[in-house]
């Protein structure tokens, strides 16, 4: 049972990390738009290019 004396404080540490991660997510605007990303993921441009078209000028990812 005495392992609990180590494990529970370790759990607290994880709790701190989880809260820290959440605060980071709020600060960096992850919660600003809760609807858009759900739709955005459905529309990617990985469908095969039609032959003969010049390649998409913007291959690099947006920051």
């Amino acid at each position: 049972m005495s392992s609990l004396f180590l494990l529970v404080p370790l759990g607290l540490l994880f709790l701190g990390v989880a809260i820290g991660a959440f605060v980071w997510a709020v600060r960096s605007g992850q919660f600003d738009d809760l609807e858009g990303p759900a739709h955005r993921i459905l529309m990617d441009d990985d469908d095969p290019r039609i032959p003969g078209r010049k390649p998409d000028p913007r291959e690099e990812r947006r920051p």
Binding site: D33, E35, G36, R62, P63
Partner: peptide, 10 residues
């Protein structure tokens, strides 16, 4: 254009 983001809700 460096960044262009649309908020779908607003």
């Amino acid at each position: 254009v460096i960044e262009f983001r649309i908020n779908y809700s607003t």
